[in-house]
Nucleic acid binder design. Structure first.
Lengths: 115, 115
DNA sequence: TGTATATATTCTATATTTCGAATACTCTTA
DNA sequence: TAAGAGTATTCGAAATATAGAATATATACA
């Protein structure tokens, strides 16, 4: 039997990989199939270096794989089963939607004030 | 329609809450019902302050709620739907179990060497 | 070969997370 | 009220994460 702690570190790593809005956005896009790094950058309006760093995190945590084709690198989810994880989180959110909405509203107001 | 970015920040926050082995361990224990802070500390062999800080993270991200009873605080999952998220991650891991095992083995060896 | 394009890496500054030690708070009970 | 138990918070140090600028690498193509 393997160390339960090591297993938890693995789980924590996966969560960590997803613990950034940009990386969530990337993974959500990749649900629909593969995208080149450049396309991800364009769609998400990111700095090239920043995007590359986030992709590097996703790669190192084995969340995505890159397929090199000529000049470009096409990324896709390493295992679509990850989508299930995201979907269950989505359901979790839907159950909390009232609370989430209230908080989103608060945030919008705060952000409006900051402008 | 609310800001997709704000929603992603929320999701990222939940993942962040779970992005630490100790917090994963706590949540996994709480699957089985509520535990006092002291019991969690005992079962997970944690420093009191450290445990309290991790619980504070889980509280602030709305993952757990504390119920005060006399001297102690009993924690439980705020919404058992979170279990579904953990379960789907578990399935994800099972699918990758071969790769995970190999990596765990590597880690065990490294750790053995470090001792 | 030289140049342009796509992507990755390195560097630096800053912010955030984590830990343990110390301290504070809040009940209970003597 | 004082003492003790259970928790939480604060503080300082170390580690890690993030962003943007600069640089490097790899491939295509003139």
């Amino acid at each position: 039997m393997y160390d339960a702690n090591a297993l938890r570190r693995f789980k924590a790593d996966i969560f960590q990989a997803l613990a950034h809005p940009t990386r969530i956005a990337m993974v959500e896009l990749l649900r629909n199939g593969e995208f080149s790094a450049g396309k991800l950058i364009e769609l998400l309006k990111l700095e090239q270096a920043n995007a590359s760093q986030h992709l590097s995190v996703l790669r190192s945590k084995q969340v995505v794989v890159g397929r090199k084709e000529g000049n470009q690198v096409f990324y896709s989810l390493r295992d679509p089963a990850l989508i299930e994880v995201l979907d269950s989180l989505r359901r979790y959110f839907q159950r909390h939607i009232a609370g989430v909405r209230a908080t989103l509203k608060k945030i919008s107001k705060l952000e409006a004030r900051e402008r």
